[in-house]
């Protein structure tokens, strides 16, 4: 039963519950118009304390396509947050007006606090460098659609793995499916946080941490690229030094298998060359489209509308 639940962490829902969302997303993809009035009269609040284009648009488009309405802010300067209001007070107020709340926040764990004070479902749309569970739903739906399975995969994650919340969420979610293994490709300074590898070790899941993409790309089923995010760094020098270290281009793609797929949460800032956009293994734009449909399915399920 997903009605009334929060989504704060990609493992908040069981694999069976995720399948329920994915199956419903597949139905929406087949016939979107059939669901145009599913959430009539419901309101989604989007509280974006940090800049976002695609995640916010994706949520707003999802709610509008379900027939619901949207209220919210896209930067804290234009809200009561600028006056110093706490997350708890903002949520208690917004929950009086909205049926479901989406929150992006620069501080890690802020959506969990929101959930503790909210009588309506709260969805984490990204908290600092921590987690991004709805991007993970998008990623899982993409993998499921292309590979027809979520098990037995060799998943390579490349780039900024320290602050890359989409990677943390993806590893956490896919490590629950049997047979998956991980290859973590990054400079030493941007390796995944200790809690991520501690989780893998505790579950006895194989992973390797390497520095060179060329050495491992030929073994991968999935290559998940990430950008080095300027806003996650405390100083400009570190950002400039590391931002272009891992660039995927046609030359590297020649080393990859014919059935490997390239994914990216977008936006990219140079880590994937434009010369591979037409490669049939490049899935990042198709992935973006899945994002809206899976968010439609999620909203409908949490509201109990489906």
């Amino acid at each position: 039963m997903l009605k009334g639940r929060h989504l704060l962490d990609p493992t908040d829902f069981s694999p069976g519950e995720l399948d329920e969302i994915f199956d419903f997303a597949d139905q929406i993809i087949q016939s979107p118009a059939q669901f145009n009035h599913l959430c009539d009269s419901s309101i989604l609040a989007t509280l974006f304390y940090e800049p976002s284009t695609r995640t916010r648009f994706s949520f707003e488009a999802a709610m509008l396509r379900l027939g619901g309405g949207v209220v919210g802010f896209s930067e804290p300067a234009s809200s009561s947050v600028a006056k110093g209001e706490s997350v708890a007070d903002t949520i208690r107020t917004v929950a009086c007006y909205a049926d479901i709340i989406v929150m992006r926040h620069p501080k890690e764990g802020a959506p969990r606090i929101a959930s503790q004070y909210s009588p309506v479902p709260v969805i984490n749309a990204g908290d600092g460098g921590h987690l991004h569970p709805t991007q993970t739903l998008t990623d899982l739906l993409t993998i499921r659609s292309v590979r027809h399975q979520l098990t037995g995969l060799i998943i390579g994650c490349c780039g900024d793995l320290k602050f890359g919340r989409t990677v943390h969420s993806l590893i956490k979610a896919t490590s629950r499916y049997p047979g998956n293994r991980f290859v973590l490709i990054s400079p030493k300074e941007l390796r995944v946080p200790d809690y991520v590898t501690a989780d893998l070790a505790a579950k006895g899941i194989a992973y390797q941490e390497v520095e060179r993409l060329d050495d491992v790309i030929g073994n991968l089923d999935i290559l998940y690229m990430t950008r080095v995010q300027k806003e996650r760094f405390f100083n400009e020098d570190d950002y400039v030094r590391l931002k272009d270290v891992y660039i995927l281009n046609a030359e590297k793609m020649r080393l990859a298998r014919g059935d490997m797929i390239v994914m990216h949460p977008l936006p990219r800032v140079g880590e994937i060359s434009y010369d591979i956009d037409d490669d049939p293994r490049a899935y990042y734009f198709k992935q973006a489209k899945f994002g809206m449909y899976v968010r439609m399915a999620l909203i409908a399920k949490l509201l109990g509308a489906s």
Partner: peptide, 21 residues
């Protein structure tokens, strides 16, 4: 001790830890 943790700014929130190992 994580400077990006929400507990660093929302002072009314208790610091809650769970034993994992």
């Amino acid at each position: 001790k994580n400077p990006r943790c929400v507990t660093s700014v929302e002072k009314y929130v208790p610091h809650v830890f769970t034993l994992v190992n």
